[in-house]
Design a protein around this nucleic acid. Structure first.
Lengths: 220, 220
DNA sequence: GTGTGTGAAATTCTTCACAGCG
DNA sequence: CGCTGTGAAGAATTTCACACAC
């Protein structure tokens, strides 16, 4: 390893910073301080600067703040965020088609080139501008198209099978919107985006908050 | 505080466990061990048992595994997850309407009773079965309807204003699907569900994985 | 003076190890 | 004998404090 081992929280924060830098850049902002970034991410400036230490030397210039463009390029290069990743969506219900249309994802570099559904005649499919295939062709299409990322928006009971097919086709990353964990072989990265659990967590915090006068909410 | 301070990771895991217990219950499963739950959440059994210590005594019986129904009720009671929460959606684009239709959320207790959009004539609005109002009425409707939770699915530039109106109306919880942080007064709970950042994090992990032979992926 | 960079301290979280129960 | 429950140990992360640069 040429670089120090990067901790998971650090990767997560830097990804957030990267997204934020993109916004700042498009607004024409040139400079940003660790204090400001910390405030926007809900953490301290120390934390931000500590995270930046994994980017190597000279990310910022002491005294002046960080250069938005330069810092963004550093993160992009360090994490390989510059390239476009070919992706597909499995499960073309309301959520799946909404995501297929989601322009911000495309702007971030996620190029959705195929969709799959077990019911090829779904009404929704006519609304999206990508080729649609039946679910049993997942592995084959993924391999032929060089798809690296799969977006899972199927019902719970179909999630594992869809995952297996994606993995068999060779995807390296899965964004799982199904409120259930899926098993993957070591080496495949899964990010779970589970709005049911998020809803439950939020509800729980509300209960805990009203229960004690502590500043629980500040820490969330 | 009658109970010990509960850490944030613990709340998150228990919310996941709660969701999982719901699935197990509907499948008719009666008993579940900490080992099994740990496996399904991707953590160790020690961690699960430690988390359960915040539930008070007798959550499980030593020797036997945990009773699914009983444990679920304990978590439900401890975190106030039993009740239905009245909610609204701000931003009725593709994503917003997809979420309004999302049945699992309703089953979890989230009762979406109103929708808002700055463009009241949106085509999508005819597809959802809830009353739709113009955005400037958010505070008023939220207050009149006793809405506690707001779901944000507006474009980035409208997120803060929508948030302000929700807070002014009295919501306590916001599920923010906008890839940008929003400011809220202390006491309001925000959960960010940001698929852009998740995409970036996943991409970063893929790069880091290929860079070193460490078992980075196991830790994600 | 304002802001970055980083080793050290403090805190938080996870893992371990083992007592106790069915 | 497998499983729960929990204090103690260990690891990881965050926070602090201060040197250095503009």
């Amino acid at each position: 390893m040429a670089y120090p081992q990067i901790s998971i929280p650090t990767v997560q924060r830097l990804a957030q910073v990267y997204a934020r830098l993109g916004e700042l850049r498009s607004k024409g902002t040139r400079k940003v301080s660790s204090t400001q970034l910390g405030k926007e991410l809900g953490t301290g400036s120390h934390n931000i600067r500590k995270d930046f230490s994994v980017l190597g030397e000279g990310a910022g210039q002491a005294g002046a703040a960080y250069d938005v463009e330069f810092l963004r390029n550093r993160i992009q290069q360090r994490f390989g965020l510059g390239r476009t990743i070919r992706a597909c969506i499995v499960g073309l219900g309301r959520l799946g088609t909404a995501i297929a249309d989601y322009d911000s994802l495309r702007k971030a570099g996620c190029d959705i080139v195929a969709g799959f559904d077990s019911n090829i005649n779904r009404v929704e499919t006519i609304r999206i501008g990508i080729p649609v295939h039946p679910a049993y062709q997942i592995s084959q299409v993924v391999r032929n198209e060089g798809i690296e990322l799969g977006i899972l928006t199927v019902p719970v009971f179909g999630a594992q099978e869809a995952t297996n097919r994606l993995v068999q086709g060779g995807v390296q990353v899965i964004l799982n919107f199904v409120p259930s964990k899926v098993d993957v072989p070591s080496g495949v990265v899964v990010r779970n985006i589970d709005m049911i659990t998020e809803y439950l967590i939020a509800s729980a915090f509300v209960t805990l908050k009203s229960e004690s006068q502590n500043d629980t909410e500040e820490r969330i």
